[in-house]
Amino acid sequence: MKIIVCLKQVPKRDLALRLNEAGTWIAEADLSWEINEPDAYALEEALRLKERLGGEVIVCSLGPARVEQALREALAKGADRALHLLDPAFEGLDAFNTARVLAEALRRESFDLILTGLQSDDHGYAQTGVILAELLGLPHATIVMQIEVLDGRLKVKRELEAGWFQWVELPLPALLTIQSGINQPRYATLKGIMGAKKKEIRRLALADLGLSAQELRNKQELMRVFFPTKAKRTEFLEGTPEEIAARLVEKLRYEAKVL
């Protein structure tokens, strides 16, 4: 089974984010980066399918030079090769155009299955995978928590709201968007990290994909970003941990009356 995994590199969680001076995006200069969480689960799922059924896992990411690190990490975990979609014209693309570029790159590969994350941590569109499926004419299922490969078909468990699930069958080739928690992702081994150095990362730019910058005009425009003003007046408790604890207990007892 030939499986493609689309992964996005996003700022590490748990970092304090700042905005750039123009207020049009975050300040990216001193950030550290990681693979978008559900994408890491998608990669693991692809590796497990390959281990079960044989085949190849190709990882694909659109982003600036730093993205190579994410691709190397995926190769170290066991992906066979990587595609890096890199061009100044790819900067700041919306979900539609990101999918558009991914589609052009992946059209050139024969594949049985494409896995993406269900949502990115930064833009959080929750769209790119589904658009990609449509552009490639593939059936899809979203928010997938289990994959079974039948004969030429897939049976997948989709998460629904409030603890419900649904099984869905679809033919191959197909695209699935993967939800966090579908598996327990592995760590790269030292051997894997050494081996990854020899694996191919192919760079594809605008011209390689037969696209022009005009074609990639965004359909939605990000005007500005800002820290939201808090709607609720939270009462912040300050002091040493002991003082805070004592004050909270008092508040819960006499104000909130929950103790």
């Binding site: 929750a126 769209q127 589904v130 552009l135 928010i143 998460e159």
Partner: peptide, 24 residues
């Protein structure tokens, strides 16, 4: 509404129409 169901088809609908979807 940005429900699981809309997540499942709205981007497809937008792409089929060649339009943008502003989500969530």
């Amino acid at each position: 509404s940005h429900t699981y169901q809309a997540r499942d088809f709205a981007p497809k609908l937008a792409a089929a129409l060649g339009k943008a979807l502003i989500s969530d």
